[in-house]
Design a protein around this nucleic acid. Sequence first.
RNA 1: GUGGCUGUAGCUCAGUUGGUUAGAGCACUGGAUUGUGGUUCCAGGGGUCGUGGGUUCAAAUCCCAUCAGUCACCCCA
Length: 454
Amino acid sequence: MRSIKPTLPKGTRDFNPLVMAKRNHIVSVIEGAFELNGFQQIETPAMENLTTLTGKYGNEGDQLLFKVLNSGDFLLKADRGSLEDEDSARFGRSITEKGLHYDLTVPLARFVVMNRNDIHFPFKRYQIQPVWRADRPQKGRYREFYQCDADIIGSDSLVNEIELLRLFDSIFRDLSLDVEIQINNRKILEGLAIHYEVGGRFTELTIILDKLDKVGIKGVCEELERNDFPTQMIEMFSKDVASGTLEGNKALDIIEEWFNFANIQVGQKGVQEVRELMSAAASDKVKLKLLLARGLDYYTGCIFEIKSMETEFGSLGSGGRYDDLTSLFGLDGVSGVGISFGLDRIYDVMTELDRFPETVDDNADILLVGFDDQCILKSLDYADTIRKAGIKCEVYPDKVKFKKSMKYSDQRGFKYVGIIGEEELKLDVIALKDMSTGDQEELAVSKVIDRLKG
RNA sequence: GUGGCUGUAGCUCAGUUGGUUAGAGCACUGGAUUGUGGUUCCAGGGGUCGUGGGUUCAAAUCCCAUCAGUCACCCCA
């Protein structure tokens, strides 16, 4: 038979046992903190209807959705006209109605609306699941990756933002990662857009402004020009950058003055919120970054972003408040705020910095090896006894050359091997070999347990 | 969607100005050692040289196309 070359879809990965042990370590830290803070776990399907997913992430986002071909004879409902017109988007819509979820927040909104009668608000939920994006993969970017989300729905108190900031802080502390928690507020960005007299294009504007650190003032102005922002506005902006009004601690005061002067109320509200948050955050990790614009389209208030202080990497987490997400599904007046941890990037950073505890990949403590069928069966009995004492125990199932089972136990990293041969069987003992020293001793099973527990 | 780099054994890679039967390390199997792992020694299996075309007496090597991977941009966790 001709064999098929084994391959993985682009941007996906297998996780071997060692990798899983490390990933589980991260998940258990995050999950433990979520639980301690009273978040309750939910899970939603890998697939959602495209009507649920599309139009929530902006144009770019919609293009990055993985779509699932309709089952059965999908050509029956296919829009043949669009095929003739070579309109892939329209044709695609006619043969797909499901897609893999792009994040966990939109499914949450759908969940909340569908289950509103059974939910007690404020609803604190957490969710740890893979998400899929049809992006070009590169370092730290995958097409399938895990997000660990904690959200609070149905409360617009800033206390929630404060709690989530603390959660960010404590989790990254527990993972021994030094990060900066950058915060900003979309309302300030909106105010800035009004100040620069392009109120309707504030997301677009602020995404460009956000690149100031990266491409400099010249690069930003060029991009503003390319996107047809008014020349007057660009001049005003470069003047603001030159005078330093958009950076540093004084910036907030100056921007507030603009907002007061022109009576830009959104902006004033944003400044007020950020002030409150900064003073309550009680962590030196939290940094105000006035031009921070990143995050999905649906954010309306505070936005958060996690940057590693120790390595160059994309963001390790993000979050923000969204006021209107559930209204898209017909439920008004339910505001939510949430944060998300990027498991895969945290893994990559921790691997690069070698931050995993030694103990993450601890294997079973003892392997039992029998020489013949009778010995192997007897070792199953021993194994039961040993496991009842809370010791991880495995039985080698095959009758093979002893050397081979020894090699296996060495490779798997067992601390002890329990050998059961004819002699041992007769005396009802196990020849217990300490794999690190090579020492061997014949002991009754109860003594073996004592030894391993001690 | 745009650009750079790379495709040779399961993995990591070497392969000279194009030249006979394409190599190494690791991994795997067997043996030295039939009741003892890690070290060592010996032997063995394993290849459409990404794919298709072209140049040539001759292509892993040169040219073209294509596919795949990867990195960067865009955007994002």
